[in-house]
Design a protein around this nucleic acid. Structure first.
Length: 438
RNA sequence: CGGAGCGUAGCGCAGUCUGGUAGCGCACCAGUCUGGGGGACUGGGGGUCGUGGGUUCGAAUCCCGCCGCUCCGACCA
């Protein structure tokens, strides 16, 4: 893609409303624009990141056995009256009335809807277990939206729901989902820590939140430094691996300030105690029969008795992750995208636009890298191109200037480390492509 | 929902107190020079000053209503 013809409106100055780094950088790098309080338009580069994150989430959900589906954004109020949450949810729920005076709402979550769907489709214990998920826009009418996409009103969320015949099954799915989440976050190049958490509106008694460490996080967190190594992932989804994984991740101390247990914390060796701030990017819940019973979803059991499924729900804030990752991965110059989710793998800088040799080399690179290459072909000076490339944060920069071009060299820069090297075009491309695959 | 602010060009702001017909920097357009970390010069385009009403000979400026946005707190994927 050529920068001169792209809708990537970067800003040299920071809009006044942006208070934290990720919000400033998302606006400055041309990823999003605010359309109303807590509501954002995703511009091309921002959408690429959002889609890459969603795709990793999707692959890991599929890998743990969840089935993708898609539920609507608009729901009927009646559904929520069944569970009793229509009144309980309060003003955070955006309520809508249609032309026939029917009461609707813009879904803040989907427990009721998925329970109704399963209730209709599943009559026998033989139809369970089921785990389904979708990636869909949600709306919660926050009192005070802030921090850009970190606390927007409209947000993209992956939410999964599990239905099991008994506690053992539900507990297994809970642990599987925790493993899937840890793998998901690791693939995005970030360390997320599972922490014991409150269940809030959803209800239930077993829950973990996943927090990315960042100084600007909204939650205070306490954790064992063993989590920092970030590789307690286990190997697969067989029972032994899941057990080992869950054991490893829940035996060490990690809690948000709401759930902080001073006595347990005291038992952590001082050298391993870490206190910091975290951004919540996911949460998993086991809540038993809360919805299956209230909404009358029972299946016929092996002996003809009626069984109410044990449920769990599992969320990942997909749009929030974009901001959260920037919050964890940036410097004074701009964003530092992890390889797996960068809008482009490579920023290609032509330092002398209009020079026959640099133009030819850049055209070649552009052809060979295809969609993963953002070619800065503008009539700008070198300094401006460097500054914008650093701001946008693509992991590699291939810098083509007249000096190097004269003796067959380009410069390759790694955004994360600032490391640069002069090498042949072939070597540079090989490095970029191999690294990206690895 | 309690408290505090802000709305003037795409972005950042001045002008409002003390009313006199809108300005600066960046960005944008044309050109010249320049050419490896947001360069310089010359010339240019762009604003019913959030909105409705009121006061006044005259309102960005004073008064009232409304809308939008932000910050602190309580709340939250």
């Amino acid at each position: 893609m050529r920068l001169s013809h792209s809708l990537i409106p970067t800003l040299k100055e920071t809009p006044a409303e942006a208070q934290i780094a990720s919000h400033r950088l998302m606006l400055r790098a041309g990823l999003v624009r605010q359309m109303a309080s807590g509501i954002y338009a995703w511009l091309p580069a921002g959408l690429k990141v959002l889609n890459k994150i969603a795709e990793i989430v999707r692959q890991e959900q599929d890998a743990c056995g969840a089935q993708e589906m898609l539920m609507p954004t608009i729901q009927s109020a009646d559904l929520w009256r069944e569970s009793g949450r229509y009144d309980a949810y309060g003003k955070e729920m955006l309520r809508i009335t249609d032309r026939h005076e029917r009461e609707l709402l813009f879904g803040p979550t989907n427990e009721e809807m998925i329970t109704a769907i399963l209730r209709d489709a599943t009559k026998s214990y033989r139809g369970l277990p089921q785990v389904v998920y979708h990636i869909q826009w949600k709306f919660r009418d926050e009192v005070r939206p802030r921090f850009g996409v970190l606390r927007g009103r409209e947000f993209l969320m992956k939410d999964a729901y599990s239905f099991d015949l008994d506690y053992e099954g539900a507990y297994l799915n809970y642990r599987k989902m925790m493993l899937a989440y840890m793998r998901t976050f690791q693939r995005m190049g970030i360390t997320a820590i599972p922490m014991r958490a409150d269940t809030g509106q959803i209800g239930g008694d077993l829950s973990h939140e996943f927090h990315i460490l960042a100084p600007t996080g909204e939650s205070g967190v306490f954790y064992d430094s063993d989590f920092e190594s970030g590789d307690a992932l286990g190997t697969g989804y067989d029972l032994a691996s899941i057990d080992a994984f869950y054991q490893a991740n829940t035996s060490k101390y990690a809690a948000t300030d709401e759930k902080h247990d001073v006595a347990a914390w005291a038992r952590v060796p001082d050298a391993r105690k870490r206190e910091g701030r975290g951004i919540e990017v996911g949460q998993i819940f086991y809540f038993g029969k809360k919805y299956s019973e209230s909404m009358g979803f029972g299946v016929v059991g092996p002996d003809g008795e009626k069984l109410f499924p044990e449920m769990g729900s599992y969320g990942i804030g997909v749009s929030r992750l974009v901001g959260a990752i920037i919050e964890a991965k940036h410097d004074e110059a701009g964003i530092i995208w992890p390889d797996a989710i960068a809008p482009f793998r490579v920023s290609l800088l032509n330092l002398r636009q209009g020079d026959a040799s640099t133009d030819a080399i850049c055209a070649d690179v552009e052809n060979r890298l295809g969609a993963e290459c953002l070619y800065d072909d503008r009539e700008e000076r070198a300094g401006a191109k460097f500054a914008e490339a650093d701001l946008m944060g693509n992991p590699w920069q291939i810098i083509v200037g007249p000096r190097g071009a004269a003796n067959g060299q380009v410069e390759l820069k790694r955004r994360a480390t600032g490391e640069r090297s002069e090498l042949s075009l072939e070597d540079a491309l090989a490095k970029v492509i191999n690294k990206a695959l690895g």
